[in-house]
Design a protein around this nucleic acid. Structure first.
Length: 588
RNA sequence: GGUCCUGUAGAACAGUCUGGAGUGUUCGCCGCCCUGUCAAGGCGGAGGUCACGGGUUCAAGUCCCGUCAGGACCGCCA
């Protein structure tokens, strides 16, 4: 070992020991006589002291030390003189009286400061990522992420799950996202794809009797990026035999609680998590991934206005529409121009209009439409929404689904600047019973989840007649308005699986060409099975309260998929293309 | 594929709306001074293709058009 202690290890109890420390020069304070060097590693900072009488000894190497040089230092641990103790760091009671300094490595001045409070352009940080990684923020994030992953592995193993690796060079199954593709040299003209998830392999593991499988798996999707999306990402992938959705949700809850606990946030969540159906989420929050922290749900108040004289509402209700409202606690302190902006925003979001009402201290309503509302309507409205003096009520009248979508957007936008209440910083939620299909541009129903998701069996008779009304045994885990993961009970009946493919408009020969290996496996005894996948980069982002998953990944890519550190993607040697039989099409 | 924001010294910015000499701030860097600091302090100094290309103008960091890069979002993400 090149060192006896790390830079954060020594305390008053170590005084009079000899120590050898290694680390980076964090700062130098040269007083002409006495020279101080703060030596830093991942664990902390230790102050080195060099007095004039030992300077010649310490500097026999004959060179100056600069910031970020890597040093090895020998010396005695000693107490700091009275009045010079630094109570802000754990090692602040001691210092090293330096006997010998060796420069292990020199350093140019860094491209940016390491202090977390020095904001730096992200492209500069990514270009110099090895330097950026030295910062406390990324040290904290990557170390917490590692603890979370370890806790998840331990939890899954404790629950009887077997860690099995699945291939990453696989057959392309062009459903859903665009695949990253890999040419084959040994079979020119044929291609592998990188998996978007281990979905089919984990189902085959169930046929194989593994019973409970998990894997922390890298996945790839060739789609455009976002703050919470990278082209390659990591998920906790889970599948279990003879299991149903509630079993899976219980296991995942346990792993998630273990993860939050490992990060020191275990007291903020409690299993079992809240549940709501997809239909409820869409009605109450206008979203399939509600953020429960952003205030109360949306309320349907159509019945309040059954006989209203306010014509805009009466006409909407007459034509089968709804009136829905949302109450923002304490939101009544807005000026007229802010209210006008809200109305404009609602129109941008597709509403015909927006009615705002402020509950005054005396309980009356201040609003441009107040004079059209009867006392009964005012009373019933306040009661339905639980509105108190100082609150802001927003009403939208339109198609029911649109009302909730618009109010749901406004709810999130109005809550965002206000932050969230500290006692509910983690708000996990299961959303159940997603629709099996969505309508698509081609007219064919497309799976809302994926085509291996089981329909809810009582809806099965509508599969051919009204496919969009069929619910699925699919469930999402949502935390703080972020979709953390999704799963479902799977189809384990080859006949039903073929019916689903046919509903999607696939011909029989196409089905067998793409998924024959799955249907064939299902001929040999397949257990009912269900599973889940959790986006672990997003989980780390939420646990760490970061705005982007890039802050939880050591070497992330930019929005255009570039790695600014290595320059990937980059042209390759033309001979590599010849090997795999590929010719570049000249640019137009 | 689209909308919006950003690009000025090694770093973070101000200056751009309302055109007039590369003006300025903080940090960092270099030199000197300084015997207990801890983001040390004091004095001095260096450091610029105002992202790139074109246009308007007597004059462009500033106005216009385009390109590139980074970011947020929509589409997309079974």
């Amino acid at each position: 070992m090149l060192r006896t202690h790390t830079c954060g290890a020594l305390r008053e109890g170590d005084i009079d020991q000899q120590a050898t420390l290694c680390g980076w020069v964090d700062s130098i304070r040269d007083h002409g006589g006495v020279l101080f060097i703060d030596l830093r590693d991942y664990s902390g900072i230790t102050q080195l002291v060099i007095h004039p009488e030992d300077a010649a000894h310490a500097f026999e190497i004959g060179e100056s030390v600069r910031n970020e040089f890597v040093l090895s230092v020998d010396g005695a641990v000693r107490a700091r003189p009275e009045g010079t103790v630094n109570t802000t760091i754990p090692t602040g009671g001691i210092e090293i009286g330096v006997d010998k300094i060796s420069i292990l490595s020199k350093s140019d001045p860094l491209p940016f400061g390491l202090s977390d409070d020095i904001a730096t352009d992200e492209s500069t940080r990514l270009r110099f990522r090895p330097v950026d990684l030295r910062r406390a923020r990324l040290q904290r994030n990557l170390r917490t992420r590692a603890r979370v992953f370890a806790a998840i592995r331990e939890s899954m193993a404790d629950q009887g799950f077997v860690d099995v690796e699945t291939p990453t060079l696989i057959r392309s199954t062009p459903e859903g996202a665009r695949d990253y593709i890999v040419p084959s040299r040994q079979s020119v003209g044929a291609w592998y794809a990188l998996p978007q998830s281990p979905q089919l392999f984990k189902q085959l593991l169930m046929v194989g009797g593994l019973d409970r499988y998990y894997q922390i798996a890298r996945c790839w999707r060739d789609e455009d990026l976002r703050a919470d999306r990278q082209p390659e990402f990591t998920q906790l992938d889970v599948e279990a035999s003879f299991a149903q959705g509630d079993d899976v949700r219980g296991w995942i809850e346990e792993a998630m609680v273990a993860a939050f606990t490992a990060a020191g946030r275990g007291d903020e969540v409690q299993a079992p998590f809240m549940t709501m159906t997809w239909q409820e989420a869409m009605d109450l929050y206008g979203s399939d991934k509600p953020d429960l922290r952003a205030g109360p749900p949306i309320v349907d108040v159509t019945s309040v206005f059954g006989r209203t004289e306010f014509r805009a509402f009466a006409a909407t209700i007459e034509s089968g529409g709804a009136v829905r409202g949302w109450c923002m606690r304490g939101g009544g302190d807005r000026g007229r121009s802010q209210m006008d902006r809200l109305v404009e925003r609602a129109k941008e979001l597709g509403a015909k209009g927006l009615v705002w009402l402020v509950v005054e201290p005396d309980g009356s309503l201040r609003s441009p439409v107040a004079r059209f509302l009867s006392d009964d309507e005012v009373g019933a409205l306040k009661k339905s929404l639980g509105a108190e003096p100082g609150d802001l009520i927003l009403l939208a009248a339109d198609e029911p689904r649109l009302c909730s979508q618009v109010l749901g957007h406004l709810r999130l936008e109005l809550a965002a600047p206000a932050g969230h209440s500290p006692e509910a910083t983690l708000a996990p939620l299961w959303v159940l019973d997603f629709p099996l299909f969505e309508s698509s541009a081609t007219g064919e129903p497309t799976p809302a989840h994926h085509p291996f998701t089981s329909p809810i069996l009582e809806d099965l008779d509508k599969l051919e007649t009204a496919p969009l009304e069929v619910r699925s045994a699919a469930y999402d885990l949502v935390i703080n308005g972020v979709e953390l993961g999704s799963g479902s009970e799977r189809i384990h009946d080859a006949v039903l699986q073929e019916r689903i493919f046919e509903t999607m408009g696939m011909a029989s020969d196409e089905i067998h060409a793409r998924f024959g290996f799955l249907l064939d496996a299902f001929k040999y005894g397949v257990p009912p099975h269900a599973g889940f996948a959790v986006g672990l980069d997003r989980l780390a982002m939420i646990i760490l309260d970061e705005p982007s998953i890039r802050e939880t990944i050591a070497f992330p890519k930019t929005q255009t998929g570039a790695d600014l550190l290595t320059g990937a993607p980059a042209p390759i040697d033309p001979r590599q293309l010849v090997d795999v039989g590929i010719a570049q099409i000249p640019e137009a």
